[in-house]
């Protein structure tokens, strides 16, 4: 099962993850996002992408193939960073 952790210090309670999740994994409680049904998470990572505070962490995800990452661009970025 996927484990979800919300960084309470980072979460700003915007509720975007609550609205976006099709499986209603999250609920807003006292202005913080709480994963109330992590067992229903299918690992799409939409919440990750949408979270403006980057407060979410998922453990046990199957990472899909990412051939769209341009290796040359990454190499260039690595050199700059």
């Amino acid at each position: 099962m996927i484990e979800i952790r919300v960084d309470d210090n980072a979460c700003n309670g915007c509720g975007l993850c609550v609205k976006d999740c099709p499986m209603h994994v999250y609920e807003l409680r006292e202005s913080l996002s709480v994963p109330v049904h992590p067992e229903n998470c299918m690992g799409c990572l939409s919440c990750h992408e949408i979270c403006p505070a980057q407060a979410l962490e998922h453990k046990g995800i199957y990472p899909s193939r990412r051939h769209y990452i341009d290796i040359r661009v990454c190499e260039m970025l690595n050199r700059v960073i």
Binding site: G43, C44, L45, S46, H48, Y62, P63
Partner: peptide, 10 residues
């Protein structure tokens, strides 16, 4: 299509 995400789609 129920949902589309960066890592998986339902």
């Amino acid at each position: 299509i129920v949902h589309t995400g960066p890592n998986a789609c339902l």
